[in-house]
Amino acid sequence: MKKYIDTGKKDTRSGFGEGLLKAGQADERVVALTADLKGSLKMDAFAAEFPERFIQCGIAEANMVGAAAGLAIAGKIPFIGSFAEFVTGRVYDQLRQEVAYGQTNVKIASSHAGITLGEDGATHQTMEDIALMRALPGMVVLNPCDYNQTMQATLAAAKYDGPVYLRFGRPSVPNFTDPEQPFEIGKAYVMNEGKDVTVFCCGHLVWEALQAAEALEAEGISVEVVNVATIKPIDEDAVVASVKKTGKAIVAEEHNMAGGLGEAIAGVLARKCPAPLAFMNGEDRFGQTGKPAELMALYGLDAAHIAGKVREIVK
């Protein structure tokens, strides 16, 4: 089992903040917009260093999307930042017309995604955003797993020519990937090689899956953990190669069952490599108030639940 060290808990949104600052330093076309959530999106450092390239939009997300499209048409590389629900569900039509159909180079920075937003409850905990963004033609959908990878994914998004949905979270979580490893859009990362079952996962679930794999190793179960950090376009070759080896798979994600990573993986396997497949997700439910760890346990998304599901499927 490959060993991963938690170098200290950090929030993935701060990884975005560092990535945004670095992207801004590397390319003067990078601009940042927010709808009154500069602090929550960790845009403070960028705003301090580049005040003339930081654009406060107030609590008006629809306008923010349109303004970003205008800036992109004029040659800027705009990052728009808000909570996941408010940069997807609230502005779906604006993203569809101005960004996806309109082919503008806008980057959607989506924080506080999923159930781990915690105490604010279901109005803010979007579990549907991946489905919405996957449905838009040409939209790239990313959900990196920790601070370091989110920082690198932000740099990759800035360099990519086209719309990108970049999903990350609020809570402090283990930081364990290589800070120097460039993020490749479209690549699924094999975090641990195994032979009995594959766990496909993204975002906060990657660390949980690695913890589960470590526990199961002691029981003689060999788990392959694949971090599908790019959900669209999905790395079909990596998905197929892994399942051809292990013969069965589990998908774990902080998202509703409809339209998320699970269905993306199921689509690939159904077409190219049918195999037993189990899903771990928010099912067809809304979230609720609670601490992130409590909610992860309640919704069956922590390492203990992943290990339990693996035991079931390898029987």
Partner: peptide, 22 residues
């Protein structure tokens, strides 16, 4: 820019105008 879904053009134009200013 594409249009058809209404109410969005002022925002786009504002973004273009802001870019000219920048």
């Amino acid at each position: 820019q594409a249009s058809g879904s209404l109410g969005q053009g002022v925002s786009v134009a504002a973004g273009l105008a802001l870019a000219k200013k920048m």
